[in-house]
Computed example of a mutant assay.
Amino acid sequence: MSDNNSANPLRHHKGRGAASNMAGRFTDYSSTREGDGWAVTAEPLERLLTEAIEEKARSIIATNQSPDIPFTQSINPYRGCEHGCIYCYARPAHAYMDLSPGLDFESRIFFKPNAATLLEQALRRRNYRCSPIALGTNTDPYQPLEKEKGITRTILQVMQQFRQPTTIVTKGQLILRDLPILAEMAQDKLVQIAISVTTLDNALKRKLEPRTAGPSARLRIIEQLSAAGIPTTVLAAPMIPALNDCELEAILTAARNAGAEHAAYILLRLPHEVAPLFREWLAVHYPQRARHVMSLIRQSRGGKDYQSDFSQRRTGTGVFAQLLRRRFHVATGKLGLNDRRLSLDCSGFRPPPEPGEQRVLF
């Protein structure tokens, strides 16, 4: 059962992305509260607190064979994300736990305290074959809860000990806490980092990604990572038609000036429950623009809210998608982004001796 906590389904909690706690697709029924018209003023919304829920994971490395994804292994220390980005394509995963992809996703966060132990066990298996492991593929490994739990940091420490290459995608300032570890790993070609910069407009950022670092802070992250010798990519994502797509060139330019050497972009994806949640968000924040935004999205998705085909889910099809792709390539060419190929080194992977194990000298 999922309950919309607001008397008006279009009101939203301050500091949260979703406008409702809509039921997931596996829920048999749902309920909503609606005003009867007698109230002179709407009831104030209660503050929505974040609940951290411990999850004892059985395994930690997930694998995939998707042809449009540049990694085959990934780790997600957390389920759900307090950043509250309304567009997050990981939201539907909360439905598998009978929770809402809406407010539950950003306020009921599962953490895996045994992640580092499981990773070490996996890396010591005789049949393990080293390939880069991606961190932050679903939810941000440097979301606010990481400051308290430190799970991502312990994972990085294990990776450094094993000389296991990793890639990281984040929009969290907390990554700078681990700068010393990351800089050392970068010297051995063991880490690459992508910083997501969705907009340079603080007002839009507060609505779109309510609990994330601001645009200026993210550019400073790129600057400090690059200065430390860490290969850094700017991820201009998602590009949303008639909302932030006009900023594409400005985002790439600002990131290049901050030290980014590579760039990528993704057209907005609206799988499963993300589509109705995004439409609710538009109705709250951009009601006069909502129809136009959704029209351009459908024009780029074969007349639908979303298409899952591997060949087009990241970039879309149609005139708008083709123009966006062309703009990206022209801008990156002028800025000298993506001129140098990124590579990680798996050749140095070595499980360190276990406690009490004698080192082999010859």
Results as ranks from 00 to 15, higher is better:
Asp98Pro: 01
Asp98Arg: 11
Asp98Gln: 13
Asp98Gly: 02
Asp98Tyr: 12
Leu99Trp: 11
Leu99Cys: 09
Ser100Asp: 06
Ser100Ala: 10
Ser100Phe: 01
Pro101Arg: 05
Pro101Gln: 06
Pro101Trp: 01
Leu103Gln: 10
Leu103Cys: 05
Leu103Thr: 02
Asp104Phe: 03
Phe105Trp: 12
Phe105Gln: 08
Phe105Ala: 14
Glu106Ile: 08
Glu106Thr: 12
Arg108Gly: 04
Ile109Lys: 01
Ile109Cys: 03
Ile109Leu: 11
Ile109Ala: 02
Ile109Gly: 01
Ile109Gln: 03
Phe110Glu: 07
Phe110Ile: 01
Phe111Arg: 02
Phe111Pro: 02
Phe111Cys: 06
Phe111Trp: 14
Lys112Thr: 14
Pro113Thr: 09
Pro113Val: 05
Pro113Asn: 13
Pro113Gln: 10
Asn114Met: 08
Asn114Val: 06
Ala115Phe: 09
Ala115Ile: 05
Ala115Gln: 07
Ala115Thr: 11
Ala116Ser: 13
Ala116Cys: 08
Thr117His: 13
Leu118Thr: 02
Leu118Tyr: 01
Leu118Lys: 04
Leu118Ser: 03
Leu119Thr: 11
Glu120His: 02
Gln121Ser: 14
Gln121Ala: 15
Ala122Glu: 15
Leu123Gly: 04
Arg124Thr: 06
Arg126Glu: 15
Arg126Ser: 15
Arg126Asn: 13
Arg126Trp: 07
Asn127Leu: 03
Asn127Ala: 12
Asn127Gly: 00
Tyr128Lys: 10
Tyr128Pro: 01
Tyr128Leu: 03
Arg129Asn: 09
Cys130His: 09
Cys130Asn: 12
Pro132Ala: 07
Pro132Phe: 01
Ile133Val: 14
Ala134Gln: 09
Ala134Leu: 00
Ala134Gly: 00
Ala134His: 15
Ala134Trp: 02
Leu135Arg: 09
Leu135Gly: 09
Leu135Cys: 06
Gly136His: 06
Thr137Gln: 12
Asn138Gly: 08
Thr139Ile: 05
Asp140Pro: 02
Pro141Cys: 08
Pro141Lys: 02
Pro141Ala: 10
Pro141Glu: 09
Pro141Gln: 12
Tyr142Asn: 07
Gln143Ile: 06
Gln143Asp: 09
Gln143Asn: 07
Gln143Tyr: 04
Pro144Cys: 13
Pro144Met: 08
Leu145Ile: 15
Leu145Asp: 02
Leu145Thr: 08
Lys147Ala: 15
Lys147Tyr: 13
Lys147Val: 15
